[in-house]
């Protein structure tokens, strides 16, 4: 997927030197990333790398304490998840995506229910909602017998897909996916990945947060590596191999430089002994 960094494809969302501290603890420091139309931007990092703080800033849960967030080129301070949604930025959270005891339809339209009537007769248009859910899910190859069945009856992969379909349906231009595949088996994960590819083909900018390079590399266009609240660089797919990404993630560069130091020390010791 070639997406030239040109004026033809301006950034959808842009972080410029963004930082976030909670009191004296710095969770993020100097993060700069750019997300464009039809591009999957993978954020890779180990636990505690600052991935979840970054998602919360992008989705309006937290406000950055340093740097600027630009949407369509205009500096913006997102005050709430609702505001982020209204600007077309939707986050699908790892385990909080759906409410298991509520029906698929009720979950799908939660917070954005289609209504009929006015004042006292104002009500959810459940028929239309059911029909939309049924066709949206059928479009991505998930057949539900009854859109009114509880989300808890779906498998993990199906739940993630419903959550993503919900975000796309409600007009997301930027989709933030927090570890969408980490709790899934190989088959389920591939369903989700295929759906991410579909979303990209529709021109949606996807931010894919994961620590699993096997899931990220096949689908990613751009990779940003996070470690302890800082970026270790952003690479296009053409600039980096899967092994190199893994190297940086696993901190193997650190180990290599350690090896060099050790070799030098041994050599010096050998000289001294002679």
């Amino acid at each position: 997927m070639a997406s030239p960094e040109s004026a033809a494809n301006p950034p959808l969302i842009e972080l410029d030197g963004v930082g976030k501290s909670f009191g004296t603890v710095t969770a993020l420091d100097g993060i700069s990333i750019v997300v464009r139309h039809g591009e999957v931007h993978c954020l890779l990092g180990d636990n505690g790398a600052g991935k979840s703080t970054l998602i919360k800033i992008l989705s309006g849960v937290h406000q950055p304490t340093a740097g600027t967030l630009r949407i369509d080129g205009a500096p913006t301070m997102l005050q709430s998840p609702r505001e982020a949604l209204d600007r077309g930025i939707a986050a699908v959270f790892q385990d909080l995506a759906m409410i298991p005891l509520m029906s698929i339809t009720r979950n799908f339209f939660l917070g954005r229910e289609p209504v009929l009537g006015r004042f006292l007769t104002r009500r959810i248009d459940m028929k239309r909602a059911d029909a939309i859910v049924f066709s949206e899910l059928a479009n991505m190859g998930i057949t539900v017998r009854d859109p009114q069945q509880a989300v808890g009856t779906l498998s993990g992969g199906e739940r993630q897909c419903v959550a993503i379909a919900r975000a796309v349906y409600h007009g997301a231009r930027v989709l933030i996916l927090d570890e969408p595949t980490s709790a899934l088996g190989v088959h389920q994960a591939s369903i989700v990945l295929r759906y991410i590819a579909q979303a990209r083909a529709r021109g949606i900018g996807v931010i894919f947060i994961t620590h699993n390079i096997n899931h990220a590399y096949p689908i990613g266009d751009v990779f940003t590596l996070l470690n302890r609240g800082r970026t270790h660089g952003t690479f296009r797919k053409s600039e980096i191999t899967e092994a190199e990404v893994l190297d940086i993630m696993a901190g193997r560069r650190d180990l290599k430089s350690l090896q060099v130091d050790l070799d030098r020390l041994t050599a010096e010791n050998a000289v001294r002994l002679h």
């Binding site: 989705s59 849960v61 998840p81 959270f93 909080l96 995506a97 005891l101 939660l110």
Partner: peptide, 16 residues
């Protein structure tokens, strides 16, 4: 719908 959501999972409800 919001009542069910708030009792089912307040955080998820807030996120949407």
């Amino acid at each position: 719908n919001w009542i069910y959501a708030v009792g089912g999972d307040a955080q998820a409800a807030r996120n949407v």
